[in-house]
Design a protein around this nucleic acid. Structure first.
Length: 343
DNA sequence: AATACGGGGCA
DNA sequence: TGCCCAGTATT
């Protein structure tokens, strides 16, 4: 039995029931693949279902209100994906007549779509004979071929790509592409924990036969995570809280945040900051402290709850009812504990 | 070639 | 704690 047949047979017998696999369309493939970038399937599922309900077509996505778009993405992370997805939808409407393009080069020219996603959409939605190399595929085939180089290196990905091209079947490119990733996701697990007993590749797997599953793949360490101190202010007047829109670029771009200041401030320093910013406070109380960890930054946040007597007239539109914030404003996870402390 | 970019789940 | 995740854009 050819290796590709074994892989396809495994997929037929073990594939998970995922929402984007029900009555698949290129649009479902596009949205799911963007959401799945660096994000687990289980995390994506509820986001995908909500997204498809609110924005069921390319055209609705292209016209979507930005606040709705970011709200649908709240908590999913890598928020530029949402921005780029809408940009891509607009380009598809304007330059491709509303039809998702069916060539790798056209797909890859869209914002937010790189080599992996173009390959995945090309193969899954359009049966293009192309390789889609994600983290799963790198792990499965570095083990299978016995490739001991650092899988973060572009050169290693190219080696795996060319080796992989040699085992592609003539048809069912869509199922085969998903099958490779499915094996990585449910059998060939990371951290030396693969379930080789149930793996369709084990009898020809280099790492398995050489007892090297715990050393392959080799992956270099990430750079050090820097620490930042912040003081977060929960400034409220009855049911309304002051929130600010973050810049269009950088971390958590376009999302809404609580006012925050670099460093850990004392109550007196907070009072000074408030008066300098035209916010005379009636009371400043210590709030909760919280640590939020990003991939490359750690925010150590100290908070204060500030009650003010009167909202300055020029800030009238910046104080939003909490229930309204929950419904319509996209607030990054890092700030949610400060809202939840009152529940 | 290296870094910025989220958040959660699991040893 | 550290690793990993259906990666891409920017520098």
């Amino acid at each position: 039995m050819k290796i590709s047949d074994k892989i396809l047979a495994f997929f037929d017998g073990h594939k998970r029931d995922l929402p984007w696999r029900n009555n698949p369309t290129p649009y479902k493939t596009l949205v799911s693949e963007i959401m799945l970038q660096q994000t687990r399937v289980d995390t994506v599922i509820p986001y995908f279902n909500r997204f498809m309900k609110e924005l069921p077509t390319i055209s609705s996505l292209a016209k979507a209100d930005d606040e709705l778009l970011y709200k649908l993405w709240q908590g999913l992370g890598y928020y530029n994906r949402a921005k780029n997805l809408k940009k891509a939808a607009i380009i598809i409407m304007e330059k491709h007549g509303g039809i998702i393009p069916n060539t790798i080069s056209e797909l890859e020219s869209l914002p937010g779509i790189g080599p992996y996603t173009a390959g995945a959409i090309g193969a899954i939605a359009f049966q293009i004979n192309t390789v889609a190399i994600d983290g799963n595929v790198l792990r499965v085939f570095s083990r299978y071929f016995g490739i001991t180089d650092d899988i973060r290196l572009e050169s290693t990905k190219n080696v795996i790509k060319s080796r992989l091209e040699g085992i592609y079947p003539a048809n069912r490119l869509n199922d085969f592409t998903e099958a490779l990733m499915e094996i990585g996701a449910i059998v060939c697990l990371p951290n030396g924990k693969p379930l080789c007993d149930t793996c369709p590749l084990s009898n020809a797997c280099f790492a398995y036969s050489n007892k090297m599953i715990d050393v392959i793949p080799l992956k270099s360490k990430l750079v050090h995570r820097r620490k930042e101190l912040k003081t977060v202010l929960f400034i409220k007047k009855e049911d309304r809280v002051l929130i600010l829109k973050r810049p269009r670029t950088g971390i958590l771009s376009n999302l809404w945040e609580l006012p925050n200041i670099e460093g850990h401030l004392s109550k007196e320093e907070v009072l000074l900051w408030l008066s300098q910013n035209g916010l005379p406070a009636s009371r400043v109380l210590s709030g909760i402290n919280f640590v939020h960890i990003f991939t490359h930054i750690e925010w150590n946040m100290k908070s204060y709850v500030v009650q003010i007597d009167q909202i300055p007239f020029h800030m009238e539109n910046d104080f939003i009812e909490i229930t309204e914030i929950e419904k319509k404003y996209s607030v990054p996870t890092a700030f949610l504990p400060f809202f939840n402390q009152f529940k």
